[in-house]
Amino acid sequence: MKTGKNKRMMTNKQKSIWVFGDYRNYYQNRVTLQLISKAVDLARVIDAEVCAVVFGHNVEEWIMEYTAHGADRVLAIDHPSLTSYSTENYLALIEKLAKQRDPDIILIGATDFGREFAPRLAKRLKTGLSADCVGLDIEPEGLLVQIAPSFGGNMLAEIVTEKHRPQMATVRPGTFKEIPHNYERTAIVERLPLPATLPASRVRVVEYERAAQKGHTIENATVIVCGGRGLGNKNNFKKLNELARLLGGDVGATRPVVYAGWADHDALVGQAGKHIKPKILFSFGISGAIQHTAGLGEANFIVAINKNPQATMMKMADVAIAADASDLLNNLIKELKKRIRE
């Protein structure tokens, strides 16, 4: 701890944690805000400022949001030539800034863009980078402890960049919780000019458009709503389709349900059916027989709804809601319809 402080006093340099402003899916993906929130926690330990860096055209909205969610400083470059995301342009800009200002840590959202952008930046800054972190911690001396998944997420690795600075990590969206906004907050905002010497990007964006949602199969669906006999009857079971539509997911079924004719065999999840790996699994009225749970090995986050709190499925869930499955399903659909502004 002492060494860190002494060094800072000697160099008299304000420590700084940078968060790269990745905003193009802002309404779906709040990773930048989540990172600012985490950076605020880390900054407290090492007495650093949190600095958001944003490039683009008409970025005032993002400057305001980053400030409201916890940034102490915002470095912004606003120019029409930065309208569409460009890895090469953004790299050239941030490389220059980072070399001038020497941040201690740079955090970047593990979006597709971030995961292409960050490794190249790390190379230019001759420093280390850990990918897709699910946890960050900081030691008083300033060493950033990066927890990154390995082997399909079954293992976690604790990674540090000991000698080189900045310390860099990309972080999975949804890992940290954003700080609620406070539009009264203020930050130092530096609106920087586009450098005159910016090299032309060698990659030309010929076309880009927001994509339609892709078609799912149950094996690669990120959201699955599964139903069992606890839903009571075929009509109740069919309502899972409505929930699946709202969540952009697929419907799965247990063996008894398939044999009762409530669902097609294609929907069977389990030992003799499909093995699924959704990010979120809703399990309605399912007790959790091994023939079913054997197919859930890789479900990331399980929400179980069952009248019986002792059911196996309720014990293996991340969230167990003790309620009548059909009743809860109806309420969930109703509430989601209100909340999702389509």
């Binding site: 790390a122 280390g128 402890v145 293992m155 976690l156 604790e158 014990k315 293996m316 991340d318 809601i321």
Partner: peptide, 19 residues
């Protein structure tokens, strides 16, 4: 540049929040 200090198993014990 990076060093893996240790590798460990993600805790399997779920939080199991009850509502």
């Amino acid at each position: 540049r990076t060093k893996v200090r240790r590798v460990f198993i993600r805790k399997t014990q779920k939080e199991n929040v009850r509502i």
